[in-house]
């Protein structure tokens, strides 16, 4: 499993088609991967295991999200005002 995700990460070129987000507007896709990345980190850190598999979500949201959004959300997480549930 760990090898699978490693290989997948190495082969990453861009965000693949995700059937949950079939529309041209990819806002929700960006948002969901941003949430999934931080949920994944939180979960794996609490278990004390390697958080490397979470990087897949990070790659996707870094591809899809405008930089200004990520900066805004990171700032909100630091301030404790981020509206999403992580």
């Amino acid at each position: 499993m760990a090898e699978d995700i490693k290989g997948k990460l190495e082969r990453y070129r861009t965000a693949p088609f995700d059937s949950r987000f079939p529309n041209t507007n990819q806002t929700k896709n960006c948002w969901q991967n941003y949430l999934d990345y931080h949920r994944c980190q939180k979960s794996l850190e609490s278990k004390g295991v390697d958080v490397a598999p979470c990087d897949w979500y990070k790659r996707v949201y870094k591809t899809l999200c405008p930089i200004s959004w990520v900066e805004k959300w990171d700032g909100q997480r630091d301030d404790g005002t981020f509206p999403g549930k992580i």
Binding site: K28, W69, W73, P83, G84
Partner: peptide, 15 residues
């Protein structure tokens, strides 16, 4: 039906 990220992506909105 499609709450924006500003709302926390949920309904009722966060808070």
């Amino acid at each position: 039906l499609a709450p924006t990220p500003e709302l926390g992506g949920c309904w009722p909105p966060t808070g």
